[in-house]
Write a protein that binds this DNA or RNA. Sequence first.
DNA 1: GATAGATACTTGAGTTATCAAGTAATAATT
DNA 2: AATTATTACTTGATAACTCAAGTATCTATC
Lengths: 144, 144
Amino acid sequence: MQKINHSIKFILELTRTLSILNRRFDSALGGLSLNEFTILHNLNIATNEKKRRIDLANKVGLTASGVTRLLLPMEKIGLIKNGKNENDARTRYVMISSSGKRMLDKATEDMKFLLNELIPSKEKSKLKALSELIAEIGARTYIK
Amino acid sequence: MQKINHSIKFILELTRTLSILNRRFDSALGGLSLNEFTILHNLNIATNEKKRRIDLANKVGLTASGVTRLLLPMEKIGLIKNGKNENDARTRYVMISSSGKRMLDKATEDMKFLLNELIPSKEKSKLKALSELIAEIGARTYIK
DNA sequence: GATAGATACTTGAGTTATCAAGTAATAATT
DNA sequence: AATTATTACTTGATAACTCAAGTATCTATC
């Protein structure tokens, strides 16, 4: 008789589902990858609509170097702009452009539409709690 | 006033946490990546301890080609073995080796230890239900 | 029982991330 | 105020995926 470890099962389901979600969203967001969407979303709701790269890294869950490489093509096609921080010359602010906003708005609609199919409606009430648990796990896992 | 879409927040937390988990586990499982762990775990609990590559792809959430590339080095270092399917010459069975089992057993202990830190104990009772919800989302997202 | 379609897998080319190591600027310590 | 440590970011080398296209085999249909 095999004893099931629910924690392990949980992590394995999590990785599986997210790999699948990543592929699905990457081809359903009008050219935006899921990580690019996350970047634009976070810039859009940020105070003053700007953020440091390191804060974005934290928000997306990538490393600083991952963010550098993710932002490079996004700047090239004009979704974001760079600004400087007068108080700290090490940091380069990232800002969303107006074309970035347009992309984001469209992608957000696509996202809502898809999520409506993917998340069972009777489970929607549990989502807030689930998000919080997942965020908590992320926080505990994070090692700078 | 910004209306929060819990579905979107859920997806964003999911990607963030999983990116972090992946990095953490990749350096905490005694040389095994999280995906490699998943492969070995699934082979280990499979009937007859063998599986087709396509079934593994489904279990891990990768594409068939991703599995081909993931298994290649695993075979090279002897964690898995290949076998053939008498009834279908297209498929190549994958089996866990005894050294693979040893690796898995050690990694499973590491995994349990880490998860004990990462998952708040008061939330553990909810894990089964959450796994099921996440699996359901994965199933709905999956497009072969 | 030939042919068209589906399935299982692999491969080439490209993308997206990692880590480790480096640069430059700021903050803390003495 | 000089030194050391820390932080923000970038870069070179590499790993781990993806998609699209290919091969081989099996299944269904006529």
